[in-house]
Amino acid sequence: MFEVTWEGPVAVVEFSHGKANEMGTAQLEALEALCEELVERSARALVTWSRKVSRRGTPIFVAGADVLERRGWSEARVEEHVGYQREVLGRVRALPLFHVTLVHGVALGWGTEFLITADYRLATPTASFALPETGLGIVPGAGGTTELWTLIGVPQAMRMGMTGERLDAAEALRIGLVQEVTPDVDAGLERARELSRGVARRSPTSIAAFKAALLGSVGQPRPRRQELEARAYAHCLQQGDAAVGRQHFKAILAGEQAPWGERRLMD
């Protein structure tokens, strides 16, 4: 379904299926299985990308959900399926690792919503983003309505969701939908690998605690945010990673790998 390559503790996942990397039930099930594998194998980082090109030569990241599979479905079944989409993408977002995605080509609807699952987002100059759903009588149902604004702010989320306007890579960079634009797909993939290798050298327990506390703090009042940070810090102390960092401080500064051990998650 997806092409998964392991580079040490880094999983590189290439979308290359169907005509346009459309996401349907089979792909959601594959993503769910991938989440389980990433946790079981204690992956430190995840890179998602695509080099797919249409018959007309247009690069495609993900051209949306697989709406053709819904022919003959009842409205109740469609609603259940979209809820499943939301659930799976929520699992990807919460993975205790660093997720960087590279958008090369068209990212429509679900393809734009997938960016919400990433911790860092790259794009090539060919990338384009849009939420066409309100023009089809629905709303974005996999995070585009209620989560995208946390990345780009309410006015820009309103713009994307209500006008359906397609954004190019430069505009996506300007509004914060992506963090970097790379010259081409190969340069983007190397940049994603570079970031992931850097994460993989750090304490997996600390990385997971940092991400959990940061995501958990979104929208919370200051006392709750401080509580989450204190819990994450205490967890690193209690699990012994702070001691490892102190013991191997000079070696870490010299670029050597510290013996961090297995990832241990907060309760």
Rank of each mutant, 00 (worst) to 15 (best):
M1Q: 14
M1A: 15
W6C: 08
W6V: 11
P9G: 05
V12R: 07
S16F: 11
N21H: 11
Q27L: 12
E29F: 04
E32K: 06
E32W: 08
C35F: 02
R41N: 09
S42M: 08
S42F: 02
V47G: 04
W49C: 08
R55C: 02
R55P: 01
G57Q: 03
A65Y: 00
W73D: 09
E75N: 09
R77S: 15
E87K: 05
P96V: 10
L97T: 09
T101M: 14
H104Y: 06
L115H: 01
I116C: 12
L122V: 13
A123M: 03
A123T: 11
P125H: 08
A127Q: 08
L131S: 11
P132L: 05
E133H: 10
L136Y: 07
L136H: 14
G137F: 08
A142W: 00
G143F: 03
G144Q: 10
W149T: 02
T150A: 13
L151F: 11
G164D: 04
L167H: 06
L167K: 03
L173S: 03
I175P: 00
G176W: 06
D184I: 10
V185D: 07
A187W: 02
A200T: 04
R202P: 00
P204S: 10
T205P: 01
S206R: 06
S206W: 02
S206E: 14
F210V: 07
G216M: 08
V218L: 09
R225S: 07
E227Q: 15
R231W: 03
A234T: 13
G240Q: 10
D241M: 07
G245Q: 07
A258K: 01
W260Q: 08
G261H: 03
